[in-house]
Write a protein that binds this DNA or RNA. Structure first.
Lengths: 211, 211
DNA sequence: TTAAGCATTAAGGTGTGATTAAGTGGCGCA
DNA sequence: TGCGCCACTTAATCACACCTTAATGCTTAA
């Protein structure tokens, strides 16, 4: 806790620590943080319960949970509670700080250094993707494909579009490269029982969606 | 409420918030908003009551209600009160903003990104339809058929026209595909006790109409 | 009342996509 | 120069979602 605090402060962030549970939800609403980190266990209620309440009361900031356990159930519970991301103890500063930086970096246009969709983050400078506190390394084609998908969230991208933009073909071959690479991405991005993000639209192509 | 306001403003919309109930209906008539969002509960009267009054006094803008509950009764009540759409708390910005964008996007010709008819919206880039705050996913043929209907609102489309435009046949088979697909669409689009939109014109074909 | 038109339902076949494994070629390294 | 690894592609088989057909039930208009 203290370690994390000083790490964050050394990186130039304003940090507010709240240890008590009392009136927590209201306080947070006043503070309007850019990012909220909840560390389990949290007071009498679990951190996840607090998390749920925050979302119900309309909280829209990114919300990261730090857990003790690392079972599939833990992870699913976090996401259902409305967390954007989870992190598992022991707390390791470098990876964690990188994630914090990605979450706090201004989202608007201009020089975007990373792409975000749901709790999936693609860091363009390091070409590393993050999901659920986990770094995902990508090969070139995997990166290109994921980047293309993330640049057009929710949009259905046809095979032709994908072939043209990722592979640079302007004709349609008999190949199934796309299917294979979609599979590689799915294994890496949705491999740990995470929510499905890469959706097949039969007869058309693929789309990045949250439902 | 505040969260929503800042989200909308960040997306470039002019937002006016009214907290008091007094003279509300008249005020709104003066303002002539492009979109009205009512959040339950709303003053002494329910938001739905206000909604009803607005419609009775001739309001024609899109009207979205944000509810606490999510029962079938809630939803039906919203629509009967004249709301175009409803949304359920907790309010999560992205989905909501998407809907707002769809409602406010200029309707006229040119680059249409979505088709609208009554409270039914078809998003062309994601191939997803929306009705009553509910996303409706469509198969290819369903999408093609709905798109064709929505491109010709109120117009009666003959079986020949539909077969030609959706299935690409230029002859008339003995098949009842159209009936079957009309049914699929009706189940998805009018399945939740919504108002009927797809009408049969006996001996001719089908038409998208609000009455 | 009756026939034609449409609605509804369920079951089968087809094609598209998923999956798996084997092949190819480039690059670093000994 | 040759070996081996890794990224990428091809190919072959499997699975199932979607589309179609067909058979039955219901409505409407003459």
């Amino acid at each position: 806790m203290q370690a994390m605090r000083s790490d964050l402060e050394q990186s130039g962030y304003d940090v507010i620590c709240i240890n008590s549970n009392t009136e927590f939800v209201n306080k947070v609403a006043d503070i309007k943080p850019d990012l909220l980190i909840i560390e389990e266990p949290w007071g009498k209620d679990s951190g996840l319960e607090t998390c749920k309440q925050l979302r119900l009361s309309g909280a829209v900031f990114p919300l990261v949970v730090i857990m003790n356990g690392d079972t599939v159930d833990d992870r699913v519970a976090c996401l259902q509670a409305g967390a954007d991301d989870y992190f598992v103890k022991p707390y390791r500063s470098e990876t964690f700080l990188r994630l914090v930086r990605l979450y706090l970096q201004p989202t608007q246009a201009g020089q975007t250094e990373s792409l975000k969709f749901d709790n999936l983050i693609l860091d363009l400078s390091s070409r590393i993707a993050y999901r659920g506190g986990q770094a995902i390394s990508l090969t070139m084609k995997e990166y290109d494909l994921l980047k293309y998908l993330m640049e057009h969230p929710r949009e259905v991208l046809t095979r032709e579009q994908i072939l043209e933009n990722v592979w640079g073909f302007d004709f349609l071959g008999e190949s199934n490269v796309i299917e294979v690479y979609i599979r590689y991405l799915r294994l890496k991005v949705e491999g740990n029982g995470e929510k499905k993000l890469i959706h097949t639209v039969r007869g058309v192509g693929y789309a990045l969606r949250d439902a």
